[in-house]
Design a protein around this nucleic acid. Sequence first.
RNA 1: GCUGCUGUAGCUCAGUGGUAGAGCGCACCCUUGGUAAGGGUGAGGCCGAGAGUUCAAUUCUCUCCAGCAGCACCA
Length: 671
Amino acid sequence: MTELLKISLPDGSVREVEPGSTPADVAAAIGPGLAKAALAARVDGEVRDLGRPFEGDAALALITARDESDALELVRHDYAHVLAEAVQALWPGTQITFGPATDDGFYYDVMAPASREPFGMDDLPAIEEKMREIIKADKPLRREVWSRQQLIDKWEAEGEAFKAEWAKELPEDEELTVYWSGDDWLDMCRGPHLESTGKLDPQAFKLMRTAGAYWRGDQRNAQLTRIYGTGWLNKKQLNQHLHRLEEAAKRDHRKLGREMDLFHLQEEAHGSVFWHPKGYRIWRELEAYMRRKMDGGGYREIKTPQLMDVRQWTQSGHWGKYAENMFAVPDIVPEVDDAGEAEASPKVAADADWMAIKPMNCPAHVLVFKQGITSYRDLPIRLGEMGCCHRNEPHGALHGLMRVRQFTQDDAHIFCTEDQVVEEVRKFCALADSVYRDFGFSYHVKLALRPEKRFGSDADWDKAEQELRDAVAEAGMDNDEYGWEELPGEGAFYAPKLEWHLTDAIGRTWQVGTIQGDRVLPERLDATYVGEDGEKHRPVMLHRAIFGSYERFIGILIEHYAGRLPVWLAPVQAAVATIVSDSDDYAKEAVAKLEAAGIRVEGDLRNEKINYKVREHSLAKVPHLLVVGKREAEEGTVAMRTLGEKEQKVLPLDEAIAMLTQIATPPDLAG
RNA sequence: GCUGCUGUAGCUCAGUGGUAGAGCGCACCCUUGGUAAGGGUGAGGCCGAGAGUUCAAUUCUCUCCAGCAGCACCA
């Protein structure tokens, strides 16, 4: 008698199955619906093929399209294999290498046969067609364990030099697997895969582009062609994705920033932003808004140095851990020759003192906290700063306003007692919520837990993580409505962190806000307060930001609103445009009155037709266009046209001003 | 930082081994027109930087810089 295997299911039930059974058998036993929907299985936490037998008692969770991230990963991996099979079917002699899943799809690196050019965009339609044939053929994907020598022989026999090279380096003792697609094609692969190609939706993928890539990422090696595709569970998801790409391109803040004359970037200061008057107007409105929020939240604003001696950064630990991202400046006077020209590369004496530009504000805030003696009665102390920081980011990471080398944070550090942590974090949750709602963002709150490499004992981490959990629970945000989720291993090396992920108008997410409880920096920089017992105690330091950085947040806002900023943020809130020059005087009067009422207004008295003016101001995304012709000048009215609407409304100038004043009020000041 | 692509007028882009072109924008003129482009004239360029090949390089080659798309990174 063989003993039955005990398979426990997510609902807590346990099923007993014959040895040799597979997850597919269990799915079938539960019901035909599930058997059909199942894509793969999670066995003791590891994603596996449905058809791979259990090796003993196990915990089983069946993966279906509802388990979106697992399912997508599987499907994309399968698309990659089908892609490779299709390319080889179309062009025998093509060598294949690797093909993983990516964030929105998959790619495969291949080497075209010597008889033809490298693959290009023109080849993609034919490959897609062949992939659909393979999917429709519903070829079973079958796992087999092979020996290393078997693999080497197979690849060498087929002239697959890259695969053979790789196989030779595989460890002898590990279980090596291949996957068959039907009986005529196979690739070596760790898996898992779907049961057959037919489980893929032939209408849910699209090949996007080709790019060059070197074998093993080394330019001394052969050059391969990387074929990129996007892959989804169904056609609807694919279309949504393609639509998102289109929308995103239209909303691109770099394009809108130029068109709306908000800012520019240029080589000489790459990664740093030149803000134009209109862009900086948005910044100033946001800054004024955030100051009101922080003042109201009991924060006190400070300003700290850009440059500090490297000794300070050594003590804070940044010079050791973060130096590669920091800009260092020798504390010297450049030598200038008689012509008044400095050397391009001034000599720096070996014993020169070095300063570094701050990559973050925290150490300086601790230094402010440390001035004088702080009593427990003074805590919590909340120090805020619109802190301008520089980080030398990897050059390939720079991206418009979203990733820059100079940025300004809406930063603050809260120094408090152990007992005050939960309440301070809860207050921050409420503050962040009020801000994000003012911009119409929904958001998810996530807790990033301890990483592998970290400071501090497990007991400290248990405590720190639990504090954040408790605070979120008290704020009532530890639920699905707030997308509450814990992310193991994602925390900072010194502390777990809460993260706020905004969802924008087209469904993309952006991490902006954060709060972290830090016990390391107060220790390193020896921050203390005097407790009720008259002894020195270590405060907890909470690092927090809501916008994250002004640059990035403005970039997100531009894309979120597709350039049509809410009136309170719009650089130009209204334009007064004349139809005929006879109404110039009246238009000037209207502009003056609007300005006096605090409206940001421009007059457009140019000798152009009204059609032209309407088009221009619409493209410039000015929210309100006030048109004045002979009639309006005589009657003291304006014809108001609101951006995005076709109809215009004629109303007395005074009423228009009252209305604009009202809708131009920032959300936190609106009654 | 890695891979691929790109760099020509303020913007979007053509083009060529013999030092350049369009549309939009800008300036001026005509036009005073009622809700998304009225017409004309004109100005504007060290063709990203450096080196090489060549009688001759914006064009070909190499190096560097920057941008774009991915990747890695984002304390």
